[in-house]
Amino acid sequence: MDLIQLAHGSGGRMMHQLIKEFFVPAFDMRELGDSAVLKNTFSDRIAVTTDSYVVSPLFFPGGDIGRLSVCGTVNDLAVSGATPVYMTAGFIIEEGFPFDHLRRVLASMRSAAREAGVRIVAGDTKVVDRGKADGLFINTAGFGVVDEGLELSSSKVKPGDKVLLSGSMGNHGVAVMAERNGISFEPPLLSDVRPLNTLVRRMLERTDKIHMMRDPTRGGVATTLNEIASESGRCIVVQESAITITPGVRGACELLGLDPLYIANEGILIAVAEPSVAEELADEMRTTSEGVGAAIIGEVVEGPMGTVLLKTSVGGIRIVDMLSGDQLPRIC
């Protein structure tokens, strides 16, 4: 039967066969040493990130754990101002995992890496006992280069800055939740998982007055805005009417009692920029497929420090705080 066995992680012939038959062709690996020796001819400034992916289920509308692992890593580099170049990928595979599923995940990673222009250059594979890994976990590291003089930091955020959101929120979290619970939508609701490095590059080429960027993954837009407010010591005031939410996401959240502000995303970003360039930056973002729904959703004010305020559609104001936990666990 075409299933992963414990021997595939033993370090012996079966593991080497697994690597050569699956991982080497999937990622165009040329050598199989203990590390990859890489040449950096782009910049002396290198950005590094690492992440782990434990999404459940592994396959969901619009993506899977493979595409998610590549796009999530690429996006963490991109919103730091880096051009993603290299990735590593470590796989923890449960005994009994189907080879067909592994092929599908690897093909998805290969496709996403090509889309993002990043190379997967090293990795590791471990196989654990049946029931110990929920199918498949993936750990990644990403490496990118940062242009000289470019610095994106919450310390640069100041009163008057505008807050931009590149698209509609909540699609990824709701798509995963729906697949997990057997809920369907018409039309189908797809995850927004996609690489954002092309969008970020266009934004940075347009203006040097972007102060910082973040991708609102776990915890959603609300949590990311709170992180920015806390790190900068400023207050962020957001207009509820300016935030786009698809009907499917809004309906699902109303049905299940969830707040879309806290739902995870994997294909949008938040940017804080000087007010003089905010409108032209939003216009530039809308010329791309990744930023077609871009909008200015709020601004930075002096205080109260470390606070996010939401001006509601009915004219009220409420504090948007961090949740103590996650509304939807295991979504990335």
Score class of each variant (00 low, 15 high):
Asp2Leu: 10
Ala7Met: 06
Glu21Arg: 12
Ala26Gln: 02
Ala26Pro: 01
Phe27Asn: 11
Asp28Pro: 01
Ser35Cys: 13
Ala36Pro: 11
Val37Met: 12
Val37Gly: 12
Asn40Gly: 09
Thr41Trp: 08
Ala47Asp: 05
Thr49Pro: 01
Tyr53Met: 12
Pro57Thr: 05
Phe59Ile: 11
Pro61Trp: 11
Pro61Met: 14
Ile65Ser: 06
Ser69Val: 07
Val70Gln: 10
Val70Tyr: 06
Asn75Lys: 06
Ala78Glu: 09
Ile93Leu: 15
Glu95Ser: 14
Phe97Val: 10
Ala113Glu: 01
Ala113Met: 03
Ala113Arg: 03
Val118Arg: 05
Arg119Cys: 09
Ala122Val: 01
Asp124His: 13
Val127Cys: 00
Asp129Leu: 04
Gly135Asn: 10
Asn139Cys: 03
Thr140Cys: 06
Thr140His: 09
Ala141Ile: 02
Gly142Val: 03
Phe143Ile: 14
Gly144His: 10
Asp147Val: 00
Gly149Pro: 04
Ser153Tyr: 02
Ser153Leu: 06
Val157Asp: 02
Lys158Asp: 11
Val163Ala: 07
Ser168Ile: 04
Met169Phe: 04
Gly170Arg: 12
Gly170Glu: 05
His172Asp: 04
Phe185Arg: 02
Glu186His: 01
Pro187Thr: 09
Ser191Gly: 09
Pro195Leu: 08
Pro195Thr: 01
Pro195His: 10
Leu204Lys: 02
Leu204Ser: 02
Thr207Ile: 01
Lys209Gly: 07
Ile210Lys: 11
Met213Thr: 07
Arg214Cys: 02
Asp215Val: 00
Thr223Ile: 00
Ser232Pro: 03
Ile236Asp: 06
Ile236Val: 14
Val237Glu: 14
Gln239Asp: 15
Pro247Lys: 14
Glu254Gln: 11
Leu256Ser: 04
Ile268Ala: 07
Ala273Asn: 09
Ala273Trp: 05
Glu274Ser: 15
Ala282Thr: 15
Asp283His: 12
Glu290Phe: 12
Gly291Asp: 05
Gly293Ala: 07
Gly293Val: 10
Gly298Glu: 07
Val301Met: 14
Val301Cys: 14
Lys311Gln: 14
Ser313Tyr: 06
Ile319Asn: 13
Leu323Glu: 13
Leu323Asp: 03
Leu323His: 11
Ser324Pro: 04
Pro329Leu: 05
Pro329Arg: 03
Cys332Gln: 02
